[in-house]
Design a protein around this nucleic acid. Sequence first.
DNA 1: CATTTGAATACTGTATACAGTATACATTAA
DNA 2: TTAATGTATACTGTATACAGTATTCAAATG
Lengths: 220, 220
Amino acid sequence: MPFKSIQPDRRRLADEVYDELIEAIINRDIGLEDILVQEKLASEMKISRTPVREALMRLAQEGVLEVSNRGSFKLYRMGDGEVKELYQSRAAVEGQCARILAVRHTAEDISILRRTVEREENLTDQTVRTYFEANRNIHRTFVELAQNRFLLDMFNMIWGKAQVFPLFAKIEQIDLSQSLGDHMRLVDVIERGDRIEALETFTNHIQDGFDLQMQGIHAS
Amino acid sequence: MPFKSIQPDRRRLADEVYDELIEAIINRDIGLEDILVQEKLASEMKISRTPVREALMRLAQEGVLEVSNRGSFKLYRMGDGEVKELYQSRAAVEGQCARILAVRHTAEDISILRRTVEREENLTDQTVRTYFEANRNIHRTFVELAQNRFLLDMFNMIWGKAQVFPLFAKIEQIDLSQSLGDHMRLVDVIERGDRIEALETFTNHIQDGFDLQMQGIHAS
DNA sequence: CATTTGAATACTGTATACAGTATACATTAA
DNA sequence: TTAATGTATACTGTATACAGTATTCAAATG
């Protein structure tokens, strides 16, 4: 019997709400001053408060939202200091992945990386969002190949927070291609196999991304 | 008016449930085969399913529990491979903190670290749990001093998972003091200020902890 | 006796009802 | 007019009710 489960993971309403909220945040439908009221969201989506509440709490646990007043939620506002901390934590996670990959990588790994970089650096349009996603996809490929689910979880958490943030930057004001063009060098350093050099190179690359980010913020 | 807020952070039932479940897991009241049924837990604790459900989902999101069958939860069972991954992620987080501290630490930081190591290495009793907690407190001090809330979050997540796991090891079978005695060297390397040496030393220290852990597991 | 079918059970997901509390607003007293 | 106090409102946290579905077990059928 070759049939497989129809619903691999039963999708609950809370998941839908979660996705919709993320989408709304990215699209700036939810702003920094908005207070997310369970009843309002529920009635807008024509469902009950329960799944809304669940989604809100998940987002809060992930650090996308924070508790406002008496248990209400609002967008988490990152300051410059925290952006720096976020990039430091990126360096921790992705640097370690680079280290792992430098020590044990297959020829197949390298070829996957090369192909991914080539594909993703070929942007269809020049919006901040496509740039963000291309960049994320490239970096995620490194992490996935390192085959460590905890590091991957951390990666997703960091980039989940990041995604609600960087859209402040305006595409006209910074040269995004500057950062994108750099990725093939990262593959090279992994292929070379020196774990310390790999970690340093990744750390520097991420530091550059941070500088670019800060330029973008302070220009606007 | 010298009065301070009575309830600094309103504590909800879900928080209590969360703590009770963690406690129960550590005490082995909840085993690997047990299926956590919302109604049963709720009636045992004489509360409704809602806060129980909330606590369960939080634990699942943190990776302590996993979805069993049709949304039920059970303990997440770690295999040897995952333990290794967990230690790799520890090295990522704590190695980066060491790096940060190596670059910018104050004399005060060093003295705090020295005092913490001295205090915590002085175990009151020789159980796996006290060893575990002393070790965690020492390592957490490094992370706290690095002043990066994301790295601290990751640290807590990793050690939260760890705490449901390592108690398999039996105190008689491994020499725990072997690992504990090593911490003062970590402070030294940070004081020396070489960020690459600091990271490498931490990574090696954590690797040693992993080896010790594996010994403990396979002896039992 | 083995296999299928149907009904009871068990449990989750969602909706709703209820209680408690903080906030805002109005009303009253100085 | 301002400060204090009472009251209505708004919103969360918790309980409960209800619906749907997977699982189990028993009965029926070959």
